[in-house]
Amino acid sequence: MLRNSTLSAFRASDGVLESAAGRITRSITATHRRAFSYTARQNAGIAHFTPASTPELTKLLESIREKIILPSYIPPDQRRKIFSLKYEKKLQSDPITIEIDGEVIKFRYMNPFKEMPQTRRSVVSAVSQFTTDEDFANLRPLFEGIAYAKRKFGSDFYCKVLRTCGNKGKIYDVLDCARSVRRTGFKLDTSEKVNEALFHIQMKAFDSKWDEAETKRALRKAELVIELLQDEGHIPAKAEDRRMLDGELPLYRDPMTLLAPLHIAAGFVVNNGDSEDVGLMLEKATDYAKDVIRVWPEGKSLTAVQPEKAYEMDNKMKYLAEPNKFFALCTPLLHGLDMAIKVVEPELAKQLLSRRNQLTADLRAAKPDISWRGESAAEKFYGDVDTMITDLPEESQ
């Protein structure tokens, strides 16, 4: 079974070179060695990694490049030979050779069961070892490379990358990959990916103690996410994932999405009252508050805004059924409502307050089942969980 599934994986990647074939010039030498060369341009798709912070990480990145990414540049018939025991001796003396952007690369036999690294495990391991700016400079070429190699991953893989990078303060590096989705394959095409990204963008503003420049940057990034959600490059690849349910809001209009820029804009106003941009930020906060009110009916749980079936589907909102995840992701949104209530006009603040207290009730219901992530989010924004899940009186507006 393992042998069959592994070989199937290699066969599945046979179509990798079809789009690039027109850019490869082929020649066969007198010794029957196959030589291939790309037109001289750096953006041909080949991954180049900069030296990493540790020898172990450098070695891992080179392994990913040599064993996963580079073989995807070889035409399918030649690539199959690399993994065929039948050609082991021949390739030892006469390796398949290609030239890309002036770099000569030689391929010999690789045992697919012993020498080929598992792509998902290798990428997650590499990203988890990133610590320095130089390490994170390798993030985009890493995803460009695995996208070129046609490696496919589920939403949980990308969410893990978002959390790992976000926890290290590098969420903007991930957004750079998302902006280049056609080269990196890093799509923001599920609610969980979007809200993981927005969670860490909000944390950038909060952790800066609402520094004026950093908060403005965070708002630009949150608004970039909303723009990307309307880009066709971020439309789900599978037809069943693209299909909208009756009454379903697109992700760029989901209240959880809109609450993030509301939080950042309101946080700027509360903490940067002397800034020359406070008027513009108040206007933005007001506009986002109105948008939230329009799509989030009064008296309805935040987890009931979308159609009920969406909360049963893995590719839509089912992840919010996990109390700890729901609690953690909604904590900064609640904090944003608290701040917005302080700065918008009284009538709008009153409408936000009803949503705020509804969300508080939802979080109280989730409290018994939360663990470290939910608790730490509450402690960061409110000091403790109990303070956070207390209703605000009407006089607080």
Rank of each mutant, 00 (worst) to 15 (best):
L7T: 01
F10L: 15
R11L: 08
L17A: 13
T25D: 04
S27D: 09
S27N: 13
I28F: 08
T31G: 00
H32D: 08
A35I: 09
A47T: 10
H48W: 13
T50P: 02
T50F: 15
A52R: 15
L60E: 14
E66A: 14
Y73N: 04
P75D: 01
Q78E: 15
I82R: 01
I82S: 06
S84G: 04
Y87E: 14
L91S: 00
S93W: 10
D94F: 14
E99G: 04
R108C: 03
M110L: 15
N111C: 07
P112S: 01
F113L: 14
E115S: 08
R120D: 15
V124K: 14
Q129G: 02
T131W: 12
T132I: 12
D133P: 06
R140M: 15
A149G: 09
K150P: 01
F153V: 08
S155L: 01
S155D: 10
D156S: 14
F157W: 15
C159H: 01
V161M: 10
G169T: 11
K170E: 13
V181S: 06
R182A: 07
G185E: 06
D189P: 08
S191K: 10
E196V: 07
E196W: 14
L198P: 02
F199C: 00
M203V: 03
K204N: 10
F206W: 12
S208I: 01
D211F: 01
A213T: 12
R217Q: 13
R217S: 11
A218I: 14
R220S: 13
K221G: 00
L224P: 00
E240I: 11
D241N: 15
L245W: 00
P250R: 02
R253Q: 10
D254G: 01
M256R: 15
P261V: 02
H263S: 12
A265V: 00
A266P: 02
L280A: 08
D287F: 06
I293C: 02
G299T: 03
K300L: 07
K300S: 10
T303N: 07
V305A: 00
N315R: 14
N315F: 06
E322V: 13
K325H: 09
M339P: 03
M339K: 11
M339A: 07
P346E: 09
P346K: 08
Q351C: 02
L353Y: 04
Q358T: 12
A361K: 15
A361P: 05
D362V: 05
R364M: 03
R364S: 05
A366V: 01
I370D: 01
S371M: 13
W372F: 14
G374I: 04
G374A: 00
E375F: 03
S376W: 10
E379F: 05
E379H: 02
T390S: 03
E395L: 12
E395M: 09
S396I: 07
